[in-house]
């Protein structure tokens, strides 16, 4: 069954067609959500909401665009909303707890962690640094970067999802990579000194 048939069946609340669609797109949706959210449990929860949204609002889908483009768009919006809501919750929480967790700032890699003796810890820190660097990008740069890196979408496909021109996507990706590199280099500098 091709995408158009699938979505037509889903418009009629066909659960079997829906299951086929989920099986086809779950990896891709979870990867996009994970790119933004950087936590598997939460990314899977948001991915479930994306699929529920697809099922409930299938009647809104117009066949003049690709189904995957529409699905990516829902996944990007749901992920960004999740992050915004979560930030609000975190900031209101921190007023009361005066939280001193530094999870949102680039972690200092101390000598102990990076003497090669603890590969897992090094890897974990590297991961946190990368995720923080991605999270620090402005929303549109981050979206273009995630669609490009986590989904290997072409400039053209990204431009469709983001409703931008191809040249805007090129420029967003260029700036995203520049900024990401800058953030990561700050972490490496501490290792190098």
């Amino acid at each position: 069954m091709d995408d158009n048939n699938l979505i037509e069946q889903i418009k009629h609340k066909d659960r079997h067609a829906f299951q086929l669609l989920v099986e086809k797109y779950q990896q891709m949706i979870i990867n996009v959500c994970y790119g933004f959210i950087q936590n598997y449990q939460d990314a899977e929860d948001v991915a479930q909401e994306v699929f529920i949204d697809i099922y409930v609002t299938a009647y809104k889908f117009r066949a003049d665009s690709k189904l995957s483009t529409w699905i990516y768009r829902i996944a990007v919006n749901k992920s960004l909303n999740y992050i915004r809501d979560n930030k609000k919750r975190k900031s209101s929480k921190s007023i009361f707890t005066q939280s001193n967790d530094n999870k949102n700032s680039i972690i200092d890699i101390e000598d102990d962690a990076y003497n090669g003796s603890d590969y897992l810890l090094e890897n974990e820190e590297r991961k946190i640094n990368l995720h923080n660097a991605i999270s620090s990008l402005p929303e549109n740069q981050r979206t273009a970067f995630i669609l490009s890196k986590y989904e290997d979408l072409s400039y053209k496909e990204i431009s469709k999802v983001m409703s931008l021109s191809i040249s805007s996507v090129e420029s967003l990706l260029f700036r995203a990579k520049q900024n990401l590199q800058k953030k990561l280099f700050e972490c490496y500098k501490k290792l190098n000194n």
Partner: peptide, 21 residues
Amino acid sequence: LKKSLSIIETDKSKEIDGKFY
């Protein structure tokens, strides 16, 4: 930088929860 960016590839290949559907 190469090591950092390779994390994305590891992220992508993570197995999905079998009970997702």
